[in-house]
């Protein structure tokens, strides 16, 4: 409750301001940007990235990192895709199977890194390769066309035109923020990211919570895979290349610290929106792909520089009080 509710609104307001400024900027620069169609398209692209960024926020909070989300998402989508397209499973079995796949990958990441104290960077880098290989194996390197079998995950809300997936993703964001700020589990994530040894010596086993965080991140990646499958109505074993970097970028833009102990799910979601608005807006302006990437890169670095500066500034203020 305390630490984050005080700091959070300010950050959120800042991010929201950046987001609105971007929307305004693109609306002025492009005739097509400010339209229901653009926003609908934009919003229907982000559910997968959103839920994955939620998991990534948790992982960064405990001072870990998960590089495997892109390929794990592809693997999960592939599992669901193959089960639907080739084995004719019902959606209500294929979806849990996909999510369980993600959960299993996350459990492995968490168990190996937390139990044996191996850097999660290395473990998830390994998982990045393993899951990608798995996705090729499962699909036999063929894109799996699923079509209408994706059911409600491909459906949109009548009238609004936004997908069911987006609604689910938004609910996940809200639930995850609640868990972070209001529950024991959330408190422990922040505490572990702040000082793991202090947590251990207060009689809490941090390993258990660290594994749980990776399991959750895996589960959410599985859900992201299902969203992706629903959006494209197919499972491509090459899907999600570089997605881990987009997710980390969104979370970092949202102000989550890479060294752990500080972060907010809501702000990560705002980070996702900022990235998506930039991508769409720049595309509509006819900015070439290389330039788009350069601009995105600059924004990420600028966001972090700003954040570090702000942190330093508040530290100086804190220092003044201290003495």
């Amino acid at each position: 409750m305390r630490l984050d509710t005080v700091r959070l609104p300010w950050n959120s307001i800042g991010l929201l301001a950046v987001l609105l400024a971007l929307v305004l900027l693109f609306s002025v620069l492009s005739n097509y940007f400010f339209s229901a169609l653009t926003f609908r398209t934009l919003l229907n692209q982000i559910p997968a990235l959103t839920v994955i960024a939620v998991g990534m926020t948790y992982v960064l909070l405990i001072a870990g990192i998960d590089l495997s989300v892109g390929s794990v998402m592809a693997l999960c989508a592939a599992v669901a895709g193959v089960l639907l397209a080739q084995f004719g499973w019902s959606l209500w079995l294929a979806v849990p199977a996909a999510m369980l796949t993600g959960l299993a990958c996350g459990a492995l990441n968490g168990y190996i890194s937390a139990r044996w104290r191996i850097s999660s960077f290395v473990v998830t880098l390994g998982m990045l390769e393993i899951a990608r290989g798995g996705a090729y194996l499962v699909t036999d390197s063929q894109t799996q066309y699923v079509g209408n079998a994706v059911g409600i995950f491909g459906a949109t809300l009548p009238g609004l035109g936004v997908s069911i997936s987006l609604i689910i993703a938004l609910l996940v964001v809200l639930a995850a923020q609640f868990v972070l700020v209001k529950t024991v589990f959330g408190r422990y994530m922040v505490a572990i990211g702040t000082n793991e040894e202090a947590v251990r010596l207060s009689g809490i086993n941090p390993i258990r919570y660290k594994i749980m965080v990776f399991v959750l991140a895996g589960l959410l990646t599985g859900l992201g895979g299902v969203f992706q499958l629903g959006y494209l109505q197919s499972a491509d074993p090459n899907a999600g290349l570089g997605l881990e970097l987009s997710a980390i970028a969104a979370v970092v833009i949202g102000g989550t610290s890479l060294s752990g102990g500080r972060g907010s799910v809501i702000n990560s979601f705002l980070g996702v929106l900022i990235i998506a608005v930039m991508q769409t807006g720049l595309a509509q302006l006819g900015v070439s792909e290389p330039s788009k990437r350069i601009i995105t890169g600059v924004v990420i670095v600028a966001a972090v520089v700003f954040d570090v500066y702000r942190e330093k500034f508040s530290f100086i203020n804190a220092g003044k009080k201290l003495s």
Binding site: R2, R187, Y188, N195, R262
Partner: peptide, 23 residues
């Protein structure tokens, strides 16, 4: 290094380890 969560407030630090009791 081993006792406190320096970035967290006083109350959070006092109840660390007993969160079950206050939830």
């Amino acid at each position: 290094a081993q006792g406190l969560l320096l970035r967290a407030p006083v109350a959070d630090n006092i109840v660390l380890g007993q969160e079950r009791r206050i939830s």
